[in-house]
Design a protein around this nucleic acid. Sequence first.
DNA 1: ATGTATCGCGCC
DNA 2: AAAGGGCGCGATACAT
Length: 613
Amino acid sequence: MAGIVYLDLETADADRLWDYGPGFVRLAGFAVGDADVVTTTDIASVVEVVQQADIVVGHNVLGFDLAALERYHGLDLTSLVAANRVVDTLLVARQNDPPLSGKADVQRYNLEAVCRRVLGVGKVAGEGGSALKALAREHGGYDQIPVNHPDYVRYLVQDVHLVRELSRHLVIDDYLWREHKVMWRLNHISKQGFRVDVDLVTRLVAEREARLREQKEFLHREFGLPLDGKKPHTTTAGKLSLEKAFSQLGIEPPRTEKGALATGKEALEKLEAQHRDNEALVALCQALRSFNGDRSMAQTLLDHTSIDGRIHPSVSAGQATGRISVTKPGLTVLGKRDRSNVCERAMLLPDVGDVLIGADLAQVDARAIAIHAQDAGYIAALEPGKDMHSEMAAAVFGEEGWNRQAGQHPRRADAKAITHATTYGMGAAGLALNAGISEQDARRQLAALDAQFPALAGFKRQIREEGKKQIICNAFGRRMRVAPGKEYTQAPAHIGQGTARDLMMQGILRLPTWLLPCLRAVVHDEIVLSVPEHRADEAEKAVLEALQFPHQITPEAKPVPVLAQASDQGRDWLDCYRSEKPWPEVSRAHREQAGCDDPDCTWHQTARSTEGR
DNA sequence: ATGTATCGCGCC
DNA sequence: AAAGGGCGCGATACAT
């Protein structure tokens, strides 16, 4: 074996890792131990070196460099990861110095930023990232930069040096070894890709354009809104003419919190409800609302679809809680609650000959909190076979009116909101506003919750206190940063989300390896897989087996059961929810019909409205 | 032309 | 004293 190998690659446009083809990797730089940095275009020789290494170290190597060597040069990454022979300094940097929530910290983890922090500013010469971008611009693309260009080579050499220096300052704990295996498994989502119904996407893009044009013309004709821009009502000129329109209709224009003209769903729905008889106003609101929720998801999917007809989203764990981001395109924001946009999920398909299966964890954030809080009553409410929210309702509102055998507690929905909200530190005022109750009632309900679950209340106090040290740790050892001053809300919320994240990742780690190439998406508490039709039942059983287990925070602690439920086996992602959702169009079988009688069917509606055009 | 901030929407 | 968390993406406005 060849000691520690520090590695960095220069490639064509990084966004094209999965569809560029041979030649993607252009130049490799590596150093073995303390030896000089070697740069070469002989990538096969680099694969040899990596395979021989005791450990290969690099920044984002798991998600990028080693993935590229695996894809285009036959690297056996599986064995490397299994033997703990990969150290990704990006994963390490995030655990050693966790990010704040929000956008402020997204740029803090590129190699140069990490090195400036850890090694000191003087160690980093220039701005490699932007210089590289300039080189690419100058030569007409990342894949056109001459591989012997002195600046190109110099930045590569510096990055290898930086990785080597950096790795001497980073601390690798047990959580990180686990995390490498987690991210390697999740990277199958990027690698395999998710098949797109390109015909449907193309049709939806066209339909949306037609609809938008129609609405814009209507608003222009009736209310004098400008025609330019994609959403004229959000431009300065558009807002001005809208204000005028509202005034002419005798209505005070609705405002957002910051005083701008409100054109959001809630504001418009409220306005509509208040002035039902003002026909022109209702028409205006409806036209404006047709812009809302009208996202260009089809276009976004199309923009990210590779020549193989698939999207290859990025998977990363850069959030403050460790939650997994699936982006480019973002798969965590596809419509689900709204009938009007749930059909976005119909655009994603299983592989040919496959079906999609899904499973989601039941109340996983509550279980995460229970694991930490060790509140006997709270854990009891989470026992298998019990309906957690009904149990919570009984605890807060009393047993009366609830026949356990007959079904759910009548105030189940209220309890659900309270449980969820208090985990995130909602106060009485917020709860009152949210639930439409008096502040006094809200205070009483929150107090009842604390009284019924004293250990839960104690845990929240304790974790808020720990949050003052800025770093808190979840049940699996992930370190999470709490913003100073935000301990009250963030500390319990981070525990709920962060431990929930690692419960799901535990399930991912428990999946049998044959299912890894089947992974298509993770959405916090849900996973989706494309599996051969004849193995669907077997796969579903294996997934449920993997996702369900009791977890205890210490060997002495009370275990909390983690439970999951399977979705339907679907011929597209939407089809997976056909028995969960009440809308007929969720079923692919329904969508395959030429038409239907349901006037509210969002699938056949567009077909009807465009008929005879 | 390109990047950042803000808003408003969607999801869990 | 009071305090609802975490995100991604598109569109626009504005600065550079």
